[in-house]
Amino acid sequence: MIWQLDLALLFLVVAIAIAAITVRDLLSAIMLLCAYSFLMAVVWVEMHSVDVAFTEAAVGAGATTAFLIAALARTARWEKK
C-alpha cells in the first residue's frame, strides 16, 4: 500500500464520479463511468483484492459500458434541462 498513490486514485475516482453526474452529454457520462470502473479496479488491486478488481474490470468497464451504450442508442443523447 502506497498512501500517496491511494490518495491520488481516490481523489481521481471522486472527481470522475462528480463529473459523471454533472455532465449533460449522456455518452460522455457513460465513458466517465467506464473510466470510474477502471480506476476502481486499480484501487482494488492497490488494496490487494485482485479478484474483486478482476470482476470490476470485466463487468464494470466492459459489459456495463456496452449495455449502457446499447441502451443509449434507443434514447436521446442529450439530457433535457
Binding site: 485482485v50 470482476t55 470485466a58 459489459a63
Partner: peptide, 14 residues
C-alpha cells in the same frame, strides 16, 4: 488464483 466462472463468462460474452 484470481478469476473464476463469473469473470470468465463475462469475458467470453464480451
Amino acid at each position: 488464483g484470481p478469476g473464476g466462472g463469473f469473470q470468465g463468462g463475462v469475458i467470453f460474452a464480451s
